[in-house]
Design a protein around this nucleic acid. Structure first.
Lengths: 186, 186
DNA sequence: TGTACCATGTAATTGGTTACATGATTAC
DNA sequence: GTAATCATGTAACCAATTACATGGTACA
């Protein structure tokens, strides 16, 4: 099975959704660590249905087009459950900015510093976004992770990874920019 | 141009290399943030040569097959330099383990804890590996980043990102595993 | 009148992995 | 002998992005 299939099942295991809804969930919150365009989601849903992991019903709406609402089946839930505790396949991380850092010695230090400051700001912005979500989560669910429902804890854990990632990334960008600036003046 | 093309040029800007050598450099150090199989590297080199960014000469060896050693051209270096300070195209990070974390509420907490402890160990191992390289770098080049040559600083910066990433990832794995264990006993 | 949102799909292309293919040398 | 390393390529397949395609409603 494709990882995208499990990503779709992950969302459907919490809530019934249309292809359009899935596309939006893959932009915001889950999309921060797995995303897909609608052109990939619609065929994936058809495939999951062929395989018996999801079913759909057509929901008529007023003032809006009809939609297909998908629901996970018992088989889908079983497949997802089995996948969760399997070790992930080690895929190579691909980060273009680190590649640029590796070759930055070819560039003007000033121009490179601008890039890293700019990228640092983007990661800080994303961090603020995550932290706002974290605050909302802590307010709404128990405050401490132990008191949360298990599914809420799972969402919270994923978010925590995002926070750590962005915080550390932003800090690295600032560190690189500072190092570049020293090469400019001193 | 393809990012892989720039990854290849990044390496060739420091040293002339054969396709085989490039494959190995894409496994270890640069491969930690950009990697490729040899089946992707050989066609890429042919394409870069078509485009005028690299040239090659055949080097005869004793006891080993002949090899094609590639060198970056002035045009290649220019293209690489221009690319370095361009903002990277925002590609979605894909992390299967975070996706699993998001769905871990479906699994047995014990089985999930085993997964996250295991993954934490892998990231700690990678971190130790990076730190050994860092120690080697600091010993060989000036000790402080300001005293390094610019190209060494660039390598060091890329490594620093790897260290931050692995440290933070390992810590997150331990935190998730601890949270899961609390759900087991308490 | 134009833009954004809702809603769903297909087609073409690119990027990447796995598998197929060959052949010599060195070390165990 | 047999596995590992050196060395280079092609072919088939899968995953993902971009582009093509349609059409109604709400709102400014």
């Amino acid at each position: 099975m494709r990882t995208l299939g499990y990503a779709v099942l992950s969302l459907l295991s919490r809530e019934d959704l249309s292809g359009y809804d899935l596309k939006r969930w893959m932009e915001r919150p889950l999309g921060y660590f797995w995303s897909a365009k609608h052109s990939q989601i619609y065929p994936e849903l058809a495939r999951l249905e062929d395989e018996g992991f999801v079913t759909h019903r057509v929901v008529e709406q007023q003032g809006k087009p009809d939609k297909k609402v998908f629901a996970i089946t018992a088989e889908g839930r079983e497949a997802l459950k089995a996948w969760v505790t399997e070790p992930p396949v080690g895929r190579a991380p691909r980060d273009e900015l680190i590649l640029k850092a590796y070759s930055m010695w070819l560039a003007e230090p000033g121009a490179a510093a601008v890039l890293f400051e700019e990228q640092g700001r983007l990661h800080e912005e994303q961090l603020r976004h995550y932290k706002a979500t974290e605050a909302w989560m802590e307010e709404n669910w128990g405050g401490s992770p132990e008191k949360m429902d298990f599914d809420d804890f799972a969402s919270y854990a994923a978010l925590r990874r995002g926070i750590g990632y962005e915080r550390d990334y932003a800090e690295w960008c600032r560190w690189v920019a500072a190092g570049l600036k020293e090469r400019l003046s001193g």
